[in-house]
Amino acid sequence: MNNLKKPQKKKVLLMGKSGSGKSSMRSIIFSNYVAKDVRRLGATIDVEHSTVKFLGSLILNLWDCGGQDAFTETYLTSQKSQTFSDVGVLIYVFDVESRSFEGSNPRDLLTYTAVVSALAEYSPSAHVFALVHKMDLVQNVFRDQVIQDRTLAIQEYSGVFGKRLKVYGTTIWDQSLYKAWGDIVKSLVPNLHIIDGYLHDLAKETSAEEIILFERATFLTVTNVTSELGECNPYSDRQERLSNVIKTFKHSLSKYTHSSTASHPFTEIAIKAPRFNLILARLTNNTYVLVILPPGDLEIELSRFNIMAAKDRFVELDIMGWAARDTEKLEGKSNGRIKDGR
């Protein structure tokens, strides 16, 4: 256990033009909003700081930066060092319907370039994700083409981040949002290889076709293991689909029980179908595990035991996280003071 890395506090910048949907997606992923509720959100003024716990131990220090020109101006001038230092991830949101994206005066891209070069100056090791948002407004048949075009354009303006940049087409109305955020969060999870190793062991013991580890509060995929057979699954977007489906079910459960959506809504869902068995069970305080097994009554009971047995190892990882979290809290306080002083 000595090779466990201490979880760090990561700064996540969420930027993009005003009205592009930054706060909407943040609310859906981290605050349990459903898609149609986001119209209640108003414009973000200046920066909205929020700390999001992911996997209990990983603290994401999310900066939702209001996108109006006046604010963007200050981020790039007077508050440049505050904003762009210690950044783990920059998420830049483009509105697919924006009229100032391309053409003679690509203002969206120029602002983006300014942001990226400021980032290169203060946090050169940061990851950059570009989300082309509101894809639901583009007709289905054109979506791939639009994404391709935008990706090329954005890459061209990305400077030193051009090679590492990842571009996603997203919309709050389907699972594409979970796909993008799942990848974003994965790039931040410490000790991912250890968790991966454990999952591989579990997969071997249970002869599972697929195991997916979900984070409890967001139901984003942390990591997954897929067997050879599982790779043949024709649905390559299944992880984010499941995130979406389970989260919807979680909402209806919380409506039924009148409890906060963030608490543990259920202990286990089991489905025995003719072609597969499925267990979605609470693994640790912060995770749920989804195991897909071959059909048969025996398989499902056996792997239930295996999951129980594996629990301890995962809890160990989790507890390390919890211990680290307490120190994080202290750091968080001192950080807060600096913020107030600003």
């Binding site: 043949c232 649905y235 689909r241 499925l278």
Partner: peptide, 25 residues
């Protein structure tokens, strides 16, 4: 009504998952 809604949502989740994992092996 709430129990009915919950049951309907459970059917949704089962149908969705069966679609994803019910492929012909």
């Amino acid at each position: 009504m709430k129990a009915y809604e919950l049951c309907a949502d459970l059917i949704d989740i089962i149908v969705d998952m069966s679609e994803v994992y019910g492929w012909d092996r």
